[in-house]
Write a protein that binds this DNA or RNA. Structure first.
Lengths: 188, 188
DNA sequence: GGGCGCATGTAATGAGTTACATGATTGA
DNA sequence: TCAATCATGTAACTCATTACATGCGCCC
């Protein structure tokens, strides 16, 4: 009856554009390669899908942020290679500064459930939250296997680790409290 | 030329439905009051807009999760009062457990910029990040003024504070490193 | 010759937002 | 009487996603 879906992105279009501009700034690229690179190496930063990449490239070209020249190779579809324009460079600089200086508090989907946590029997609640914690731990474990990345991404990876550790501690503190309350045997 | 927009939600539709069901579970309500309550008291949990609330109520009624009875009061538009059905209760229980046990790593918009931070002169970078930190601090300051909430929300508020403090520390550590590198005078 | 990788897209759908539309009641 | 609040909604738009469509080149 229910459920599938889920999109936990808090990326806005600005950040996607910033990302694309930033990559094109380093070197000219066509959509396929760009998306491949993003999927392979920047999965932590973003979750930009292929049609979205093509769409944004198209749009940015129309806005004059990037220019296009086609490269034919046999009879394949021509590579539409994009290059940052001067306008694009300006936009990049602006978006970058805006991203670096702005802060917006995200709204955590977790919290919707937390607000009703008292509807679940405490033993089951603990079991559920332990499942959640296991997923966080799994993420952390996986991250320790990630080899040193280009300096670029080191900060991003650190941030992610920092965040996950925080969430783990937070969950732990809730579990401890729940545990204490069952041991005192005073809570429902 | 640019910029407006921004939606930093990581709430999926599931969580919105969970929220609405959870509220209707406590007492029957019509859309207007429901939205009012959400906007006033649950702004930390969600950012559900009015038309979205009406839309979801409609949809949930069609799915049989809630039922509707109208209350006329003079010649105003009738209040369409919704009540949780048995099916709705089942769905609520399921969504709640799913929310409590699942975890998905969010993707932070901040990180897109961080990845290109080395494009900004270090002094300016520090200035920008300090602006960001000021916004986090402001959020934290504002939270300390929030009086004790119903037990319900206490955890959510704690989570938010916990998260904001983490982000502040993380930013601080970056700023310290940047500062150290300028003092050594070895970085561009 | 069959399947994977390269390379492009389009179309349909979903979800949510903003802006607009309507009209009664209440209080200054 | 005029503005704010109560109470409902619709319409148009934006953004992103999934699924589909096409076809060449290369390797086993």
């Amino acid at each position: 009856m229910l459920i599938v879906n889920v999109d936990y992105s808090i990326l806005s279009i600005m950040d996607r554009e910033l990302l694309l501009l930033g990559l094109l700034r380093r070197r000219d690229m066509h959509g396929y390669k760009l998306h491949e690179f993003i999927e392979r190496d920047l999965a932590i930063c973003t979750d930009l899908k292929k049609p979205t990449a093509y769409f944004l490239l198209d749009k940015m070209e129309k806005q004059g942020w990037i220019s296009r020249h086609d490269e034919q190779d046999g009879k394949r579809p021509a590579r539409r290679v994009y290059r940052l324009t001067d306008t694009g460079e300006e936009v990049f600089q602006r978006l970058l500064r805006q991203n670096l200086s702005d802060y917006h508090v995200p709204i955590f989907s977790t919290d919707a459930g937390l607000a009703f946590a008292d509807e679940v029997p405490i033993a089951e609640l603990m079991r559920l939250l332990e499942q959640k914690r296991a997923q966080i731990d799994a993420e952390l474990a996986q991250m320790s296997h990630v080899p040193d990345h280009a300096g670029l991404l080191q900060l991003v990876i650190e941030h992610r680790r920092h965040y996950l550790e925080t969430e783990a501690r937070w969950l732990e503190s809730i579990l401890n409290r729940l545990n204490a309350s069952t041991e005192r045997g005073t809570e429902s």
